[in-house]
Simulated assay, not measured.
Amino acid sequence: MSIPRLSLGEWALIASGLLTVLVVAAVDYQVNNQWQLDRAIAFFAFMLCFTWFCLMADVESSLLAKGLVAFEVVSAFYLFAGYAFEPIMVLLVVSAGQMPYVAGRYNNLILIILNIPFFVYSQYFTESPLHLLSLVMFIGFQLFASSSSQARKEAKENKEQLEATNLKLHATQALLAQQSQQQERMRIARDLHDSIGHRLTALSLQLEHAKHAEPSDFQLWRDEIGQQIKETLGQLREIVKARRQQEAIDLVAVLDQLHKHLPENIELRYPASLALEAPELAEQMAFCLQEAISNALRHGAATRIEISCPSEQPFQLKVSDNGRSIQQWHAGSGLLGMRERLKEFGGTVELKPNSEGMDLHLITAKTL
């Protein structure tokens, strides 16, 4: 099991949950006034499932996470059935904080349903039935814990989405800056051709005509000036031709822009130059790099990301991180989007675990 990097607040929440279970166990022991091995095992199993769940990297798409929460509820009911002690219901409050991650929008309804067996058992199988007011109070605590977790979950998702959008905007900004420079160069080249080029062409024609019309004393002068003008005109055409050709787009400019807006503790390494002559491919590669960096931070909790170029002919990029190394994974929208971007260039996207985290290979079939 890969343990995610948790904040101090998240560790505090885990400690608070475990402390709550320990307090309930201590009170239960004082009330029963005797040591019961099965109840001790049930409390320990509840704390184990709770801790395991909190330390899981990906809980929303995991059947194991759902099983852990279900086992918590079973353990709580076993303890309640063994001795219908009202504080045992506090265990459901602890589990309620995990419900939004496994039950989604139905978590509040499931919490209310889970209280029914406790109430029915206390009414028909115990001498001290659970009061309806107490049940409502416990349900209120559970809904509060569930709603707090739901709000925290949504806030985290919104933050991650905002960070991903921010990186995408900066990548687009860097590409637009380079494209704007290219458009300005093309405008200058067009203006040079339309003004100076036409004038030099006219002057060359005039001198060509003057060679036959004027006295032969100026023949040498005319030949020399005519040759200079022709050479200048040839140079001008070469400049215009070079300027009209779209220059290579350097992906390093995009990475520089992204690097400026990453958290200070994130280390991003990349080559000094990653130039592509095909602007369409460069644009798609830039968005793929932005998505790869975003995924490494959001899903892998990486602190170091390294980008390398294993091959230029054909062009390939490799993105390695030190985040969570996931042996079994499913392609999400980000990975599918990268594959769609490179598909028209005959490219592929491969994701593999490494010794520290994950390796993402962006491969194109074109030789640039």
Rank of each mutant, 00 (worst) to 15 (best):
M1T: 12
L6N: 04
S7A: 10
A12L: 03
I14F: 04
I14S: 06
L18K: 03
L18N: 09
T20D: 04
V23R: 11
A26R: 03
N33F: 01
Q34K: 13
A40P: 02
F44P: 00
A45T: 12
T51L: 12
F53M: 05
C54S: 14
C54A: 13
L55H: 11
M56H: 06
L63Y: 06
V73S: 03
A81M: 02
Y83C: 03
F85H: 00
E86V: 15
V90E: 09
L91R: 01
L92E: 12
V94A: 07
Q98L: 13
M99I: 02
M99V: 00
P100S: 00
Y101P: 03
V102T: 02
G104K: 07
N108T: 09
I110G: 08
I112R: 14
I113E: 08
F118I: 00
Q123E: 13
Y124H: 11
S128Y: 09
H131F: 08
S134M: 07
L135I: 04
V136D: 09
V136K: 15
V136G: 09
Q142H: 00
Q142D: 04
L143K: 01
F144N: 11
A145L: 08
S146E: 10
S148N: 14
Q150F: 07
A151E: 09
K156V: 09
E160V: 04
Q161T: 11
Q161W: 07
L162P: 00
N166F: 08
A171D: 04
A171R: 05
T172V: 05
A174M: 09
A174K: 10
A174S: 11
Q182K: 06
R185D: 11
R187F: 06
S195G: 11
I196Q: 09
H198G: 08
H198T: 15
R199E: 12
T201Y: 10
A202Y: 02
S204C: 02
S204V: 04
L205Y: 07
L205H: 12
H209N: 10
K211Y: 01
A213K: 11
D217M: 12
F218R: 11
L220E: 15
L220N: 15
E231R: 10
E238I: 01
K241A: 07
Q245C: 00
A248I: 01
D250Y: 07
D250S: 05
D250P: 07
V252M: 00
V254E: 01
L255M: 12
D256L: 10
Q257D: 15
L268Y: 09
S273M: 02
P279N: 01
F287Y: 15
L289K: 01
R298K: 15
G300Y: 06
A301S: 14
T303N: 10
E312R: 14
F315N: 05
Q316G: 04
K318I: 09
R324G: 09
W329M: 09
G332F: 04
L336K: 15
G337D: 01
M338G: 04
M338D: 05
M338F: 08
R339D: 05
T348F: 06
V349S: 05
N354I: 04
E356Y: 08
G357M: 01
D359S: 02
L362G: 03
L362C: 08
K366T: 10
L368E: 14
L368N: 08
